[in-house]
Design a binder for these strands. Structure first.
Length: 573
DNA sequence: GCCGTTTTCGGCCCGACTGTTTTCAGTCG
């Protein structure tokens, strides 16, 4: 048996689907592979367990054929069906599909007629003018492909959520000034608060659509106009971000907002459900017997389809429709539930502000408590504190606690987990503290087994209460390190250790799916900002978004507790 | 390839936009 994660198996299925489609296979067969891949990434159960217990084919979308294919792949370490088709079709074809405007059918013609088998070949074919000679292609297609190829190569255009929220806010402010704009909302993955997005989708209800589109594409922020239609305008802003604006009538707005918020998978399920209930749902409205059903808001759509309202963060086809039908949706945690921030850095290590400034910022936000958790000695790049400096800091906190009686300042530390799993301070130091957070900052190159053991050893230390940014990823820069998540969760539950949702804009670690997995294990979470500057206190909403996407409720998160309850929890009472 | 309170065969979500086509295929969301 070979260790393959659900995600890796999903990748195999997707590659297989893409190649089959390029070859010209029945598209429903192809879709079956995509569906199976999607199912694998959407579940928290481990693939190997499902296979071992013979429950794999219980998953919807995974039947006899794909079950056999997965089993075979796990046994051999490779998928013979995929390898076979890869002998026939070069692997570089897969990357062609990443080019916007180029799908499997076009890739088919490019390969079978011109022998183009990768990005380089495409570029040459385009430059030599061969591509435009093909049937179904032309000069315009050539230009479009050249442009999108350049875009694809020039940069990976992922936008982190924080950036997307700010940039879309600017655009919304600008658009609101135009008279014809009656209503405006973010749509797409930003509205679902996904951690990264490819573009910004905005939806407007308004009169005189052409005027609105015209106003939009002439905004000062706009650099190039990529599309201008009757109901839609697409631009690239000076920050290089793609923005799509759609304009609909006020009557259409609720259905359009639902539609353009997605996810695509959620919408597919919702339309299936609508169809079964005798309705038709599209971006223009909800229809019964060709008659438009009047909708006042997006909520009406869910209500009419006999579902509890599903917040955008949950719309990922991860079981939310069934839960909504059964009245079992989570009461999602919200920003108002947060009583304090348990991971903050001061000037004692690599933070910008004094502890007092952090205290003041927290009081302004109405927090009941904060924890000062600077770095421990070995993390030199972050000015980790020697035991002596830590003692100084503890004195300072006591002094400030006397000064500010309306907020509890917890004495904390973010202690490094050494590469052997030991901690960077001895227990005699840790026992003096209210809160010990442990984290990995070095040795990312270790293998899965080593990292997992290291983490487990840290959790076995009785003083460790939270593991910070447990997967070590940096968005757009560094992938999560390999860690055995099942063992991590089991150990966290056993030792009553919390896992962190680190709200730092480039971390958002744990991610939404792993958060949900933690909840399934009964593991508690802490949503912290890891602020090094007081502006970063705002990042709490990003962590809340991850929590909501991970189906968390107030009671799953420790920093929703009142101070007395939290203190008793930290003491292990 | 998957699936089933009309089904083991015959469907599989739906519509806009684009470019190329002269009635539509491909891509995208």
């Amino acid at each position: 048996m070979v260790e393959l994660s659900n995600k890796e198996m999903a990748t195999i299925l997707r590659e297989l689907a893409d190649l089959l489609e390029i070859r010209g296979e029945n598209r429903f067969k192809v879709r079956a592979y995509y569906n199976a891949a999607r199912r694998l990434t959407a579940i928290n159960q481990d693939l190997h367990q499902l296979v071992a217990t013979n429950r794999l084919k219980e998953l919807p979308g995974i039947g006899k054929g794909i079950t056999a294919l997965i089993k075979e792949t796990l046994e051999n370490g490779y998928c013979s069906t995929l390898e076979e088709i890869k002998r026939e079709l070069p692997a570089g074809l897969l990357e062609l599909l990443m080019v916007p405007g180029l799908g499997p059918k076009k890739a088919h013609h490019l390969f079978y007629q011109l022998g183009i088998e990768d990005i380089e070949g495409l570029k040459k074919g385009l430059e030599k003018g061969q591509v435009r000679e093909l049937k179904g292609f032309g000069a315009k297609t050539e230009q479009k492909l050249l442009a999108s190829l350049e875009e694809y190569q020039s940069y990976q255009k992922l936008i982190i959520l924080q950036h997307a929220l700010l940039h879309s806010q600017e655009l919304i402010e600008e658009l609101k000034r135009y008279q014809g704009v009656l209503q405006i909302e973010r749509a797409g993955s930003i509205r679902r608060m996904k951690e990264v997005t490819g573009d910004i989708d905005l939806l407007v209800a308004g009169k005189e659509r052409a005027g609105i589109i015209n106003y939009f594409i002439r905004l000062p922020l706009v650099e190039t106009v990529t599309l201008q239609g009757e109901n839609k305008g697409s631009v690239r802003t000076e920050q290089g971000i793609q923005v799509d604006l759609r304009v609909v009538s006020p009557a259409e707005f609720p259905a359009a907002l639902q539609y353009f918020t997605g996810s695509k998978e959620h919408n597919v399920r919702l339309r299936e459900l609508a169809k079964k209930s005798g309705y038709k749902l599209n971006e223009y409205g909800l229809f019964k017997d060709e008659q438009r059903v009047e909708l006042k808001s997006e909520q009406d759509i869910y209500r009419i389809l006999k579902l509890d309202y599903i917040i955008p963060e949950l719309r990922e086809d991860r079981g939310e429709l069934a839960a909504a039908a059964a009245g079992k949706l989570p009461v999602s945690i919200s920003y108002q539930d947060i009583k304090g921030d348990l991971h903050l850095h001061s000037r004692f290590s690599d933070g910008v502000h004094s502890i007092e400034e952090l205290v003041q910022t927290a009081r302004q936000r109405g927090y009941q408590y904060i924890a000062i958790t600077d770095h421990s000695q070995s993390l030199r790049v972050a000015h980790g504190m020697s035991p002596e400096t830590l003692q100084q800091q503890l004195g300072e906190i006591e002094h400030l606690q006397d000064k500010y009686s309306d907020i509890k300042i917890l004495k904390g530390i973010e202690v490094d987990i050494n590469s052997d799993g030991s901690l960077d301070y001895p227990d005699q130091i840790l026992e003096q503290l209210d809160l010990v957070i442990a984290a990995i900052h070095t040795g990312f190159g270790q293998g899965k087994a080593e990292i997992t053991e290291r983490m487990i050893k840290a959790m076995e230390n009785p003083y460790v209460k939270i593991i910070a940014h447990p997967q070590g990823r940096i968005l757009k820069k560094r992938a999560a390190y390999q860690i055995d998540r099942e063992r991590l969760m089991e150990k966290a539950r056993e030792t009553n250790t919390c896992l962190e949702i680190n709200s730092s804009a480039y971390r958002l670690d744990l991610d939404d799916l792993t958060v949900r997995m933690a909840k399934g294990y009964g593991v508690k979470l802490a949503i912290n900002t890891d602020s090094h500057h007081r502006n970063e206190f705002d990042n709490m909403i990003l962590g809340i978004a991850v929590a909501r996407r991970g189906w968390l409720e107030k009671d799953d998160v420790i920093n929703t507790m009142e101070i007395e309850q939290l203190l008793s929890f930290l003491r292990g009472d």
